[in-house]
Amino acid sequence: MSARVTLRRLDEMKAAREPIVMVTAYDFATARLADRAGVDMVLVGDSGAQVVLGHDSTAEVTVEEMLVLAAAVRRGVSAAFVVVDLPFGSTELSDAQAVETAVRFVKEAGADAVKIEGGGAARLSRIRAIADAGIVVVAHVGLTPQTAVALGGLRAQGRSEASAERFAREALAVQDAGASLLVIEAVPADVVDVVLPAVAIPVIGIGAGAADGQVLVAHDLLGITEGKTAVFVERFAAVGDAIHAGFAAYADAVRSGAFPAAEHGYRAPAEAVAAAARVVSAR
């Protein structure tokens, strides 16, 4: 069994320029496979709203649903550092609400850290409050899907002067507020490269160039996601095609009578068959 990845280990990896591998997963089986493969971090993303639960946006997932997903992932992981997204609506009202939600994910789901999107004044207050409660906070700036409507949709950030300034300001502010790690999503690499030297905490990128580490959604990198994916997604397997082929072959075998065959069943001694026959004949 590999040694448990800790926050200290992640800091050491950054210092040694050892790339950090992070995967977004939502269930026991996938998390276990990722952990066995040696990934350093597993994120239970609120993108599970779409990927697993079939909602139209991340904003629709609830705390209770995220707790179920997070607990399943935690049971599948023995070494990786587990981070859980704080879903939309669970932190917006107050610092107290944010702390209460974060505590639930640590106590009820076994999260090592919680992730919170945004770097505005209210978000910084939430980061401070959660960190002050003794919980590791992962900040998330750049494209923040929970509030993508306010950003003009699911599109790259940092491509205009104003957007680049906002990104740089927020990346530095979340660190100062007490975040222990930072996710940067969908920001041009040349803009990110200007800011990275000023960020002391480990930075995980997704569509943000060569940061301290990278994160992709398991369903995307395994080729399970159907339809068009984001430009930053790379398919490393064709699991979706294999699953489809397996289902089709199973359906064909059932319909043709090839499955089940004799080897897929159990044998009974003659006296058991006779006993069942006596019950039927006695009717």
Rank of each mutant, 00 (worst) to 15 (best):
A72V: 06
A258D: 06
V103C: 08
A29W: 11
A72Y: 05
V137I: 10
G207Y: 00
I204E: 10
A275P: 02
V217G: 01
A164H: 07
L86K: 10
I130L: 06
K107V: 13
V138T: 10
R17A: 11
A113I: 06
G178V: 05
G142S: 01
R123E: 15
A274G: 13
L67D: 12
A16C: 10
A268W: 12
G265H: 02
A179M: 08
A122I: 09
T30N: 02
V68W: 15
S281D: 15
V138M: 12
V23Q: 11
L53H: 14
I224T: 02
V42D: 03
M41K: 03
Q97Y: 12
V21Y: 13
T101Y: 04
G45S: 14
A218K: 01
A129S: 05
D212Q: 07
A171I: 11
G45N: 04
L43F: 09
A111T: 05
K228Y: 02
V82L: 15
I206D: 00
L10W: 08
A15T: 13
V77Y: 01
V141P: 03
Q146R: 06
A210L: 15
L7M: 06
I204R: 13
D220K: 10
A16F: 12
I206F: 00
V83R: 00
A253L: 07
A186Y: 00
G223D: 01
V68D: 06
A37G: 15
Q175F: 08
S94V: 12
R36G: 07
V136F: 00
G213F: 06
T144F: 00
L7F: 03
A253T: 09
A200C: 09
H55I: 05
Q214L: 02
A79K: 08
R166H: 04
A208D: 08
A80Q: 06
L93Y: 12
E12A: 14
I201Y: 09
L7K: 07
A198T: 14
G38N: 05
A274I: 13
G54F: 08
E65A: 03
G153I: 15
G178S: 05
A270K: 10
D56K: 13
K115F: 04
S78F: 05
A238E: 13
R159M: 06
I127A: 06
A29K: 09
G119N: 11
L124C: 13
R169V: 02
Q175T: 12
L69C: 13
V203G: 06
V280R: 07
S256W: 04
L124A: 09
A139C: 04
Q157I: 04
A3S: 14
S125E: 14
G257I: 13
D40C: 14
R17G: 04
G207T: 03
R283E: 14
L154M: 08
G76H: 03
L33N: 05
V52D: 00
E234T: 14
H219N: 14
A218G: 01
R128T: 14
A262H: 14
R278P: 10
H264W: 02
G118V: 03
A79F: 01
H219W: 03
R104T: 05
V239R: 01
A3G: 10
D112P: 08
T58L: 03
L7P: 03
A109W: 00
D193K: 15
V192P: 11
A148S: 13
G118E: 00
G209D: 12
G152Q: 11
V239Q: 10
E161F: 02
R235D: 01
V280W: 09
A109C: 08
A282M: 08
E161W: 01
T229N: 01
A242T: 14
A248D: 15
V233S: 09
R74T: 14
P188I: 12
